[in-house]
Simulated scan of single mutants.
Amino acid sequence: MAMGKKLNRTFRRFIEAQPLFFVATADRDGRVNVSPKGMDTLRIKGDHRIHWLNLSGSGNETAAHVRATGRMTLMFCAFEGNPLILRVYGQARVHHPRDADWDALITDFPKLGGSRQVFDLTIDLVQTSCGSGVPIMEFKTSRGEVELEPYYDELGPDGVKDYWERKNVETIDGKPTGIFEDP
């Protein structure tokens, strides 16, 4: 297992080649959340920094957990080629569309319906493990581009906000996500 504090060129290339990654967060109490993420939603901003665009979904655990503790782990694993698991640990900040810095942050990403938050992760540890237990699987297509994103695009901004009010204000543990609160 290799450990370091930054993303070297090899790690960057590995991350950029993955169509899928996982984000894990936890509050001080309550449930741990692990979510799969994909599409064109991740940007490496330097040796110690990653931004990723979070699209709308049926929950909003990550935002509440980051709001409470700031802790976040991203995991990337090779489903093709040489086995490898890469975990990136750090402290994150959540940025909402209402925040002053949103317009600057969102320019790094394609326009996607349901864009909900940009997370800014400052890396304090990078860890690898062998990945030999991860199955070899073939990537066919992104469901997000044919199902998720068009759904929110068709809802439009008002429909997305209504969806957030119904589904994204609290976590499954009843914690506030901050989606509509002033910065």
Rank of each mutant, 00 (worst) to 15 (best):
D182E: 15
R143M: 09
K175Q: 05
R166I: 04
G174V: 12
K161D: 15
R13A: 14
K6A: 05
P135Y: 12
F139L: 02
G4K: 10
F119H: 13
K167R: 09
D29R: 12
F79N: 02
A17C: 01
V126S: 05
K111E: 12
D153H: 14
R43S: 14
G38D: 10
S142C: 11
L53Y: 03
G113V: 04
P110E: 07
I136L: 15
S35I: 09
F76V: 04
S35L: 10
V32K: 04
H96I: 02
P176R: 01
R98G: 13
K111G: 02
A63H: 00
R12P: 03
T141A: 14
A104P: 14
S56R: 05
W164Q: 04
N33C: 09
M137S: 05
D99S: 13
P36S: 13
F22L: 11
S115K: 05
L112A: 11
D162P: 00
D101S: 15
E149T: 13
W164I: 02
L112G: 03
R43C: 13
R93G: 11
E16T: 02
L121E: 04
H95S: 15
L84E: 06
I123V: 01
F139R: 02
D103N: 14
A78V: 06
A68K: 12
A92R: 04
G144S: 07
A100H: 09
I106A: 08
E61F: 00
N168E: 08
G156P: 00
M3P: 05
L155C: 07
K37E: 01
A104C: 12
I179C: 09
G30C: 06
G178N: 10
K45R: 13
G131T: 09
A68I: 08
Q91C: 04
I44P: 01
K45Q: 12
A17I: 00
D158W: 07
A64S: 15
D162Y: 02
M3T: 15
T25H: 05
D158H: 13
G133K: 07
E181D: 15
V160E: 01
W164P: 03
H51W: 12
K140E: 13
V66A: 03
A24L: 02
L84C: 12
R9K: 15
S56T: 14
K5W: 03
D124S: 12
L74W: 05
D47G: 13
N168L: 01
C130N: 15
W164C: 04
F21A: 01
V169H: 03
F139T: 04
R67I: 00
T73F: 04
N8Y: 08
Q91D: 07
K175A: 01
R143F: 10
H95I: 11
Q91E: 09
D173F: 12
P183E: 14
S58L: 06
R71C: 08
R28Y: 10
D108E: 12
I50C: 06
E145S: 13
G159H: 09
